[in-house]
Design a protein around this nucleic acid. Structure first.
Lengths: 134, 134
DNA sequence: ATACACATTAGAGTTCACTCTAAGTCAATA
DNA sequence: TATTGACTTAGAGTGAACTCTAATGTGTAT
């Protein structure tokens, strides 16, 4: 199957601007063109875009994704370097999730505080301003 | 206990620039000053800064934290609005964690692919460039 | 034929969250 | 007394990641 940039944008929930920007930055070096110079996305390309999105969504900077893509283009002799990049990113993502979970605990405590307040109609012991509590 | 901006920066792992910026943006409206106009952070302030960091780290924009802080300053009649803000943020954070976990699954698949490659010394079936696989 | 809808490019502009600079004040120390 | 070092401010600068504009081209519908 082949898709226009607009269709792909819709599919992966990016704008056409962003897709062009990603190509310009070297994140999508394989996209073909038709006879008018318009981009043609194949199914493989969609999957690639999705991988790029996955890395971006988990906090990998554009420049680092570019490095990874460049290694991909070199060929077999770079698999170990690529493995290393993905491994390190995996660890960062795991840490990020752990930190988010910790933060969520704090947020839930805060929320519980407000819930108690609302339910019990008590005096505001839960931070009308933070001088009083938390 | 009282602390200088430098000490607080160290404690919460922000720069002094960032702390001043947060105050300028209205995120820390209660910080007192000494006779020379220097900021004095109390223990309460540290906790407040940590809450701000918690919200920031989980993706709440500065402007939204500001709105929340402003509501705190108004007083008791805004607890329901504040509860709502925290509740909605909690849900967003949960979604964010869920999305991160999904992404991690994808990243792990990729990594496994490279690991197999490295261990088995097979032909590169795992994306020397993405035309071949994934 | 002409308008509409979609595509293209280079490059400018925007937003966010800092990050830093310059110029100044103040207190303690050599 | 002079320097050092920590603080202050307003406001300029930075970097990342988009986001958009303007000019242009192409194919289809009325």
């Amino acid at each position: 199957m082949e898709y226009t940039i607009r269709q792909v944008a819709e599919m992966v929930d990016l704008t056409t601007y962003t897709l062009r920007y990603y190509e310009k930055e070297g994140l999508l070096p394989f996209i073909e063109r038709n006879e008018h110079g318009n981009r043609i996305f194949k199914d493989n390309d969609i999957e690639w875009v999705q991988l790029v999105c996955c890395l971006r969504d988990t906090g990998m900077p554009i420049a680092e994704i570019k490095d990874y893509v460049d290694l991909c283009r070199v060929g077999d002799e770079t698999t170990e370097q690529r493995r290393q990049i993905i491994l390190e990113h995996k660890l960062k993502v795991e840490q990020k999730i752990e930190k988010m979970k910790q933060s969520l605990v704090k947020i839930n405590k805060k929320l519980k505080c407000y819930n108690n307040l609302t339910i019990k109609e008590e005096t505001d012991v839960c931070n009308p301003n933070y001088k009083i509590n938390d």
